[in-house]
Each structure stands twice: as structure tokens, then as C-alpha cells.
Amino acid sequence: MTAPQITDEVLVAFADEVGPVGPVAAVGARTRWSTGGPSADGTRLVTAPHGIVAHSASEMTVQVRAGTTVAELEAALAEQGQRTALPDRGGTVGGAVAVGENGLDLLGRGRLRDAVLQIRYVSAEGRLVTAGGPVVKNVTGFNLTKLLTGSLGTLGLFVELILRTNPIPAAQRWSAATGVDPVAVFDALYRPASVLWDGTTTWVHLEGHGPDIDAESAVLAGLGDFTEVEGPPALPPHRWSSTPAAAAMADGGATGTFVASIGVGTVFAEKPPPPSPVPATGVAVRVKQNFDPTGRLNPGRRPGG
């Protein structure tokens, strides 16, 4: 017995479009188009197919074409009471996974890279390849889905993904207070979906069963004068990746106006982060060479660059 080849016409057509030669990149909604550096001139742009293939609430998985918008996916899942870990910034599913950034509520929704179960992609040779598997738990072979998540389409162009879904909690509440220690807030709560801090105000997102949110709100009331708010604050445009401890000590000096994600380490800032010194390890260089020997996939871009 051998594994069946992919015969889905939509996938095969995309592979044919990518083909085996010439610089090529997949374009989504361009919400993170500058990530990893500018696309090289002369790069042919292709658009991944669109649509939700299958969703099963009892499997907690969804199979979706890479060109589907995150908003469309989330709307369809919400009808079944579920959601994913993908951040919705107006972009596509393929784009979100290629960039690999987490959503604001990652402590509640989970981390993006933990939600990616299977990626079907077109290789530099124009072949359809499957990484990972369709089920929620899988250690069959090497962990290629992790390698591909956040690879900016430099190792393969995503065409279809299977993502882990999760139930939408019964209730949720944002509240905010000034003059409280955000770390003390984070430590006092069991599992807040998000704790944000701009140096003055602390925002807390609680999710779960209503009575649990009430109980956690009572904990918050003991720490400061929290009042319910509509949602998170507006986030400054740039994204710094710090440790949780460092994010809690942000003072705005380097970042300008900021909103720090407490317990996570992401700092949304007015100023761009300094270039991150991605070590050009032999392994990372060899990965790129092995997956894309001619350098045709999304030339100009480098994950972390």
C-alpha cells in the first residue's frame, strides 16, 4: 500500500500555477506584507484558493484553503460555537500561518503554532506536499508543520491547512483599572485570556463560565478599581518580542507609546523594534537550501529578517 496522491483539482491547479521555475510568492491580503523584508523585484505573485472544505465540531478541526480570510473562517466556526487561535487582522488563513504571529488572546485561544495540524503546500519543485496530519494529536515523522509556520512562504507556498478549533467560552469580559501592578493581576488570576498594560492602565480579558468570570472579577476588585470596558485598547502598530519579565518592565523609553502583553512578552509599540539578530545558523541556512535550492520561493524575504 502506498499513500494516495492528492487529486483535489483545486490543489493541483494551484500547484500547476506555482510551477517549478521562476521567482514566486503567495499574496494574501497584504496585512503583513512588509514582514521579513521587501519582496524581490520580478517575483510573480499567486493567490491561494479560497473556501472552507470541512469542519467538524466533534473533531475540533477545520480544513480550509489558504486563501480564505480569517474573518470568513471565524464566522463559519462561530455558527458551531468554535474558533481558532488565528489573529483576525483582515488577512488570510495562509498569510496568518505564514507569518506566525499570535493573537492578542493567546492565553485563552492558544498559540497559533500549536493550532496548525496539517499544511499542504507547493514545493519549490512545484509538487504538492503534505506536512503533519488531520488529527489533533500526531507525532508521525518530523515536525514539518512547525518549521513551515512562520516561514513566510520561503519553504513552500501554502494551499490548504487543517487547524485545531476550540469552543467559544460561554462568557467573556474586558475590564480595566489604573494604578495596579499588572504582574500582580496576572499572578492572581487563574488563566486570564489576556492582560495588557500601557504603563498606566491594566486591561484584563476574562473568558469562561459566567460564575468563574464573576469570581475572577471579585479577585480583581481586591486589587484595584476595575471597571468593565468594551474591549482592548488600540494597539500601537509595531510588535516587539520580549520575555514576559522584560515586557512587564517596559517604560516607553525605547518603544514610545506601548501596550505590553503581560505573561506573554509581546509589546505593541509606537516605534519599530531594532533589527532582530537572527543567528544565521548552519541549520537554518541548510533548511532553506534544502527546501528551495534555487531560492525561488518568496525571494527577498527572510523569517525574522
Binding site: 506566525g100 504571529e101 499570535n102 503554532r113 507525532v139 518530523f142 515536525n143 514539518l144 512547525k146 518549521l147 509556520t149 512562520g150 516561514s151 519553504l155 510588535r239 518580542s241 520580549s242 520575555t243 514576559p244 522584560a246 515586557a247 502583553s261 506573554v264 512578552g265 509581546t266 532582530s276 537572527v278 543567528p279 545558523t281 541549520v283 537554518a284 533548511v287 523569517p303 525574522g304
Partner: peptide, 18 residues
């Protein structure tokens, strides 16, 4: 790395399960 979103390819994730 210990930071929120370490830059570069996720070689950590690729290593786990190797």
C-alpha cells in the same frame, strides 16, 4: 527563546519530536 515570538524559522519546533 523565552521571548514571545522568537525570530527566524522555528527550528525549536522542528527539533521537538526528532
Amino acid at each position: 527563546g523565552l521571548d514571545a515570538e522568537p525570530a527566524g524559522l522555528d527550528l525549536r519546533g522542528a527539533f521537538v519530536g526528532g
